[in-house]
Write a protein that binds this DNA or RNA. Structure first.
Length: 565
RNA sequence: AACCCGGUCGUGUAAUCGGUAACACACCAGGUUUUGGUCCUGGCAUUCCUGGUUCGAGUCCAGGCCGGGUAGCCA
């Protein structure tokens, strides 16, 4: 896979740890990482960054990266998500090869290890209810107290645990707990639950089990089974590390190193699975793959490239404190890549009819246009020109303010790759709205250059009315109107910051005919406007384009400044 | 004093043993240009505070301040 490297790759504290381990021979030079998603939802760009981290760390250190589904909670998990997750990782360009694993495949080993801990007096079956467990746990400032079941005999624990497994007890009536320390200042060490009873069919293990391991009991042990060297997770698991270490030590098994780093946050969006699910369920967006969503499938549909996401992952870096990346950086990474690979094309989003009065009626000629000035190998194409054209409404102003270089009455501009035209007449409807322009063209300027050296200050994109393709174009803006969606008026929640203008549908746009028949996912730059890609809703009868991201727009910035004054 | 982790330009990161605070985005100002795009040039922080060690501290020590995480039979 080619990743554009526009700046030297910076190091990070995790790579430093790996480099040191390789120097000291701690893992005999092995590097094995893993991406451990829970199949209970779709992946988002934060996951993409984690995937990028783990697969790259493995690749750059001659190691391997496993894909392991953390499927220990059958209540929430589904096969549908497993398939979608695999598709997303492949699209990002990573390959786990034969290393596809499931925590559910380890249920037997986990059970045996639990029996081992019971035999050693390090785990016990507890009869406390969920409420009682919470009460016995104590609080952040007060130690917990021991369960009356804590000192059951080893034989009784063994018998009870086996009967839990056999399904003799209803959900929630018993748990297996590690016997550690109810007074520990770390709540995770106050006899954490290892198994709960769940009479629930599992997507992979079916009805074989009715006791399911908790995260802390399953995750580290899965890492151990797979001989992971560096188990990388997010900051909120920092408090779990002592427990991660405790299980491996007490069991006397292979002991990977857990390393935590800060999860990704981005301005003007939300990132938690819970919130993304809420947006979908409450119909604020059309689905997980709504092009406004920061999900991988949403970004894909929007027209993002894997390379842009990789570069963004690299540039946001890896650290141990919370921060929020500017969405402008993501958009920069996107433009940077698209600028190099997206073919140029002309499309008019808000059409304004232009008649070239001195151009012969019924005549058509094909003008040569460059496909990508950044890529000489991309070649050229022919664009049809005729007497009636469309230009962008924004490219004409009857009373142009200072610094507006585009078309105005009496003014001459260039039509890209075509001719210089001069506006001679403005036609308005009864409301005073401009509906049509009449212009004259200079035949000597064919191709867009004036032989007499005359200069124009603007070059406009255009499309021949008769030859253009009619298309729907969907414009997207940030999902939320505030940089930090959590800043709200009293009594409101984050959803009150949802940006009502995040989607604008333009049902009747005109695109040059060369894009006809382009498959969904095909990306273009519509010159002077932005990058667009063919949506999955598109058909030959009705092409649909998504605006992936705008071009940088200096004029919009100036105009905004003028408006303020 | 619950415990754990952390604090470097507006934002995100870098600075190997203690040795001129660097890069990118954003922003501002210019240049080039048949995309007001791209590209090019320039501008923009004495590292949370206070003290200490040292010829020398973003880096080491002490105290403070501020931020995040943790009381699921979720992961």
């Amino acid at each position: 896979m080619s990743i554009t490297e526009s700046e030297p790759k910076r190091t990070n504290f995790i790579q430093d740890i790996i480099a040191e381990d390789n120097r000291s021979g701690k893992w005999d030079g092995r590097v094995v990482t893993r991406f451990p998603p829970e199949p209970n939802g779709y992946l988002h760009i934060g996951h993409a960054k984690h995937i990028y981290l783990n697969f790259n760390l493995a690749r750059e250190n001659n190691g391997t990266c496993h894909l392991r589904f953390d499927d220990t909670n059958p209540v929430k998990e589904e096969q549908e998500y497993i398939d979608a997750i695999k598709e997303d990782i492949r699209w990002l360009g990573f390959d786990w090869g034969k290393h596809e694993y499931y925590a559910s495949d380890y249920f037997g080993q986990l059970y045996e290890w639990a029996v081992q801990l019971i035999k050693e007096g390090k785990a016990y079956v507890d009869d406390l209810s969920p409420d009682e467990i919470r009460e016995y746990r104590g609080t952040l400032t007060k130690p917990g107290k021991e369960s009356p079941c804590r000192n059951r005999s080893m034989e009784e624990n063994l018998d009870l645990f086996e009967r839990m497994k056999k399904g003799e007890f209803p959900d929630g009536t018993k748990t297996l707990r590690a016997k550690i320390d109810m007074a520990s200042p770390n709540l995770n060490m106050r006899d954490p639950v290892m198994y709960r009873i769940l009479h629930e069919s599992h997507p992979r293990s079916g009805d074989k089990w009715c006791i399911y391991a908790m995260y802390d009991w399953a995750h580290g042990q899965s890492d151990a089974i797979e001989k992971i060297t560096h188990s990388i997770c997010t900051l909120e698991f920092e408090n779990h590390r002592p427990l991660y270490d405790w299980f491996c030590e007490e069991l006397g098994i292979y002991h990977p190193q857990q390393i935590e780093y800060a999860r990704l946050n981005i301005t003007y969006t939300v990132m938690s699975k819970r919130r993304l699910l809420q947006l979908v369920q409450e119909g604020l967006v059309s689905g997980w793959d709504d092009p406004r969503m920061p999900t991988i499938c949403g970004l894909r549909r929007r027209g993002y490239t894997p390379e842009a996401i990789h570069n963004f992952s690299q540039r946001t870096g890896f650290n141990k404190f919370n921060s929020t990346a500017d969405i402008a950086l993501l958009e920069f990474c996107l433009r940077e890549h698209l600028n190099k690979v997206a073919p140029r094309v002309m499309g008019v989003l808000r059409p304004l009819k232009v008649v070239i009065d001195n151009y012969p009626e019924g005549q058509m000629e094909e003008l040569e246009a460059i496909n990508n000035p950044e890529d000489a190998g991309a070649g050229t194409r022919k664009v049809p020109f005729s007497r009636v054209l469309y230009i962008e409404r924004d490219d004409f102003m009857e009373e142009p303010p200072k610094k507006f270089f585009r078309l105005a009455p009496g003014r001459e501009v260039r039509l890209r790759y075509a001719y210089y035209i001069t506006c001679t007449e403005v036609i308005k409807d009864k409301n005073g709205e401009v509906v049509e322009l009449h212009c004259t063209y200079d035949p000597a300027t064919r191709g867009g250059d004036s032989p007499d050296g005359r200069k124009v200050k603007a070059t406009l994109h255009w499309v021949s009315a008769e030859h253009a393709l009619e298309a729907e174009v969907r414009l997207y803006d940030h999902l939320f109107s505030k940089e930090n969606p959590d800043i709200v008026e009293v009594g409101q929640d984050w959803k009150s910051n949802f940006n009502p203008d995040s989607l604008e549908v333009l049902p009747k746009c005109y695109i040059e005919p060369s894009v006809k028949g382009a498959a969904p996912g095909t990306r273009y730059q519509f010159e002077r406007l932005g990058y667009f890609c063919v949506d999955t809703d598109s058909s030959n009868e009705k092409p649909v384009f998504n605006r992936t991201v705008t071009l940088k727009d200096t004029w919009a910035k100036i105009a905004k400044g003028q408006k303020k004054k």
